[in-house]
Amino acid sequence: MLLSVEDLTLEAGGRRPILRDVALQVRRGEIVGLVGESGSGKSTIARAVLRLLPQGARVSGRVLVGGEDVLTMDDARLRALRASDVSMIYQDPRSSLNPVRRIGDFLTERMILTLGRPAAEARSRAAELLAAVGMRDPERRLRQYPHELSGGMLQRVVIAAALAADPALILADEATSALDVTTQAETLALLRTVQAERGLGMLFITHDLHLASAFCDRVHVLYAGTVVESRPAADLFADPRHPYTAGLLGCTPELGDPRPLRPIPGRPPSLDDLLPGCPFSPRCPHAEAECETWAPRPVAVEGGVAACRLIPVAVQERSPV
């Protein structure tokens, strides 16, 4: 198991924990989706994998990368992990690159400083990487500045940088959300190629359930810091079991024949909303009084788990959708 998050609970000031008993696994060669709205804690999970925790956070649970617990490892090991084992790709490529440094400096800096490679070798490796992410004329790109490249090209540079240290795990935090739709598709095609060629594990974080179910092998749906459903992408899309997943699918417009949207009422909870029971119960069309006190726990469903109190009933009598 490449990445294994076990019972991760993270509190930092708010009235409810940012993450509550999160469990997820990423295997080698697998793309795992993490879907949620703003405030669901999806980025916090990715950052926790690198032990980038919010200030004053209280953490419990384990985050195992290659069997080692990130939360308890010593600083030297943590630096090595951040430098080579795990790479993160952020949403906005413009803010991850220093605007006054050339692309080449950006790519080689980490190789020279943290991996201790000679400059010439790092440079030729950087050119190789740019070619690998489908950029023409890599030598010229190395001499360019970030403002000379389009957003899609910059995200390729960021991906190349993420690959520089031969990581085993890639964390893609809304890595394509800031891009145009066509550029997004091309970037995803590239990510998938790179991932398949190198057998990487990838944690793919997005707000777009359609995108996650089209791109990932398995998908975890996150709501208010709780994993509410975790299943193979195709199953999740075809037959959502948690009312929130069903709600997300029901309120996303599709290209096919127009069907009435069924918006989820209310708004995603903030950190100051105290949610003692099922966090989705205030917005859930099927909620019963008991749901407000029922602490969510995973219930086995076809292909995975869903955290809904009504599921055993639903299996026999009605679909929770």
Binding site: V181, T182, E186, A189, H210, S213, A214, F215, A234, A238
Partner: peptide, 21 residues
Amino acid sequence: RLLLGSVPRPGWDPAEVVRLR
């Protein structure tokens, strides 16, 4: 066609978009 092909959907292959481009 390129725009349409770029919309994620079940069974979607982003590599198809590269061809459409």
